[in-house]
Write a protein that binds this DNA or RNA. Structure first.
Length: 417
RNA sequence: GGGAGAGUGUCCCGAGUGGCAAAGGGGGCGGACUGUAAAUCCGCUGGCUUACGCCUUCGUAGGUUCGAGUCCUACCUCUCCCA
């Protein structure tokens, strides 16, 4: 299927990671003949990466697995500017403190997918604040700015979109692509990095870096982008009731993460197994060939493998077991997500409305009321029809918890403390 | 600088021209059906309230009116035409 000669590009191609590559033959040849260094840049706009970052991160993973060197570049500097690509509106400006907090919190994620220097691997973690913060404006304009044509910059999608949609684009953001291009050149100088990867929306930014590398360093650099992932029914991937699907365990528990993958649409199973697990392809083909309800087995494998990558094998197995007991046995597993409330508060009695809001299953009392009217609320697996129902210590099960359910899939345990 | 038009339920798109908590989509959530899937059908989708009801919401700030998303004035942002 794949016409590539290098393991690296072969693996990526077979697993469906490749959307666009610049000069594929040359890059292929290079990757075949020697270890190459490649990087992906990450925003620090949130305290955790989310599902959308997973795909590019898996590319770094395979890069390392096929004998090359990955760099995870934290955008400590560029986040202060804000990438306008694919966004309608100017992002609010984050303070440096917040950015640094986010950066710290994101860091740990990479160790799950990459082996870093000092931990038996060769991966590098860099932060572009290191060189961007120190830039001198005039020097930068003269050294780097002169290589950019405004005429051409205006023609890039990230800019054109804003202009066409009559949304303001500040000069600050307009500079983002220059900084990202400069990152590429800087990483080339520092680490001999020759390839930048990213989502398909990054193509323009990456190509700018390639141009700049040629002009400033006479270097030959490459771009490789991954496809935008939508579900089989066309929806953007990674949205749930709660919002984004986070990777950090403190924002989304391994169980919830497992559930996210478990609920994959039929048509996505094979594709997701290739992209988000490291199972061998023949195993994936076997799983993807399952028909009808048997496909559920493949979804469980997907969920467990994807969760194991991110949260570890043990957490993944536990999530699978919790799901099995909850959905297949109809039991109340103590490993379900839980919220702790003071014992005294429970003994005093809490209205169902308040209880569900406290548990995070609803945003307002009214939302719970409507859910009750929709027959969607259960306490300890008993349907609630009365919104004046009080949850008390009487409701504690033999295990000492109260199980609140919204619909058939969302369960939270109340635990006294 | 002059003229014309636009900004709506803080997820998005979009009707609305004096009685509106504001049509209709999409998205999301729930229910039925299934396989924790998709498709389909049904319900819900501003806050508080047992309820009567109260509060907040249509770019911003004022004004007219019993009553304003709707009319008037100023301002902000954007689009188009003229210079």
């Amino acid at each position: 299927m794949s016409a590539y000669k290098s393991d690296f590009l072969n693996v990526l191609a077979e697993r469906g990671f490749i959307h666009q590559v610049s000069e594929p033959e040359t890059l292929d040849q290079l990757a075949k003949s020697q270890p190459i260094t490649a990087y992906i840049g990450y925003d620090c706009t949130a305290p955790s990466l989310h599902i959308g970052h997973l795909l590019p991160t898996m590319m770094l993973h395979w890069l390392q697995q096929t004998g090359h060197r990955p760099i995870a570049l934290m955008g400590g500097g560029t986040t202060r500017v804000g990438d306008p690509s694919g966004k309608d509106e100017t992002r609010r400006v984050l303070t440096e403190d917040v950015i640094n907090e986010n950066l710290k919190s994101i860091r740990q994620t990479f160790s799950k997918f990459l082996k870093f220097e000092g931990a038996g691997g060769n991966a590098i973690m860099a932060n572009n604040a290191e060189w961007l913060n120190a830039l001198n404006y005039i020097d930068f304009l003269r050294d780097v700015g002169r290589h950019f044509s405004v005429n051409r910059m205006l023609s890039f999608d990230s800019v054109k979109l804003r202009i066409d949609r009559q949304q303001e684009l500040s000069f600050l953001e307009f500079n983002y692509m220059i900084l990202q291009a400069y990152d590429f050149v800087e990483l080339h100088k520092r680490h001999g990095c020759v390839l930048q990867m990213g989502g398909s929306d990054q193509w323009g930014n990456i190509v700018n870096g390639i141009d700049l590398g040629r002009r400033m360093e006479n270097a030959q650099l490459f771009a490789l982008t991954a496809p935008l992932i939508t579900t089989a029914s066309g929806a953007k991937m990674g949205k749930t009731a709660a919002g984004a699907v986070w990777l950090n365990a403190d924002l989304m528990s391994p169980y919830q993460y497992w559930q996210f993958w478990r609920n994959t649409e039929d048509g996505d199973v094979t594709r997701f197994l290739k992209l988000f697990t490291v199972l061998p392809l023949d195993e994936i083909v076997r799983l993807g060939a399952l028909q009808g309800s048997e496909l559920n087995e493949a979804k469980k494998v997907l969920a467990t493998e994807a969760t194991a990558l991110m949260h570890g094998r043990e957490a993944a197995d536990q999530a699978a077991e919790t799901a099995r007991r909850t959905f297949e046995q109809g039991e109340t597993s103590l490993a379900l997500p839980s919220v702790s409330l003071p014992r005294a508060e429970i003994e005093a009695g809490i209205g169902v409305l308040a209880a569900f809001v406290k548990a995070g299953l609803a945003k307002s009392n009214g939302e719970v009321r409507r859910a009750i009217a929709n027959n969607a609320i259960q306490v300890n697996d008993v349907r609630i029809a009365d919104d004046k129902r009080i949850v008390t210590a009487q409701d504690l099960t033999a295990d000492g918890v109260i199980k609140l359910s919204l619909g058939k899939k969302q369960h939270i345990l109340i635990k006294p403390e």
